[in-house]
Write a protein that binds this DNA or RNA. Structure first.
Lengths: 112, 112
DNA sequence: TTAGAATATTCGCAAATGCTATAGTGGTGG
DNA sequence: CCACCACTATAGCATTTGCGAATATTCTAA
């Protein structure tokens, strides 16, 4: 059970796959379009898509000789959005730390 | 930026670390207590905790010669909870698929 | 049926990950 | 000071991952 969750996080644990999932959050796309938008080789895109498929993050639809990909659950888009909020918040903290390095009397408490 | 998000997902992409984060969602714990609860060697626990530390998922507090770990942001607990909902939902779907294998006339639509 | 377009798969290799075992570090009590 | 305790860090090894290049598969059009 935890292993299953871990596999999903593993599927999201790569910048390229995050890019793909974010793109798919806007709507479905063909494999070729994805590799073009993300800016990677066709082979590499196909491999990342296979991982997202195997971990049940995306689903496919076939039309002619194109394959359309879409998110299996909007939850994944939401999770990336939550993560974005968190990253932004942490970036602020990190900037405060930089400020400390430049000025030891910076406005952050509980630092010794 | 995407790399930073990917690193956080990477931190969560292991069953043991999910166990640790779930445990810490209930409150802080010492490193020793964690390795005991999770049922892994002290060394292994320390390595996983180092990863969670480096990826900014947990924070530490020192008391005597014990080190207490806690989640840096309740968001991580929430994410695991969301993931739990999703996994449960998918488990239902999977069970339906099993039913199909046993009975081709099962009660799932859009299957050809 | 043959050519071409869109995806998928396999291969070889460099890099990252996970684990055990083995040090190393820093508090604490005697 | 010294021995212990809780914890962290490193080494070595097997396994996994990520990549481009080459190759296979599948669909469509002519």
């Amino acid at each position: 059970m935890r292993k299953f969750k871990a596999e999903i996080f593993q599927a999201l644990a790569h910048p390229t796959r995050i890019f793909i999932v974010q793109s798919l959050a806007q709507g479905e796309m063909t494999a070729g379009k994805i590799s073009e938008v993300v800016g990677i080789t066709q082979s590499n895109a196909s491999q990342h898509l296979a991982i997202l498929r195997n971990k049940h993050v995306v689903e496919t639809r076939k039309d002619g000789n194109s394959i359309y990909y879409r998110l299996r659950d909007p939850l994944f888009g939401e999770m990336l959005d939550k993560m974005r909020q968190y990253v932004v918040a942490q970036a602020m903290v990190a900037m405060n730390h930089v400020a400390e390095d430049q000025d030891a009397n910076a406005s952050v408490d509980n630092v010794e």
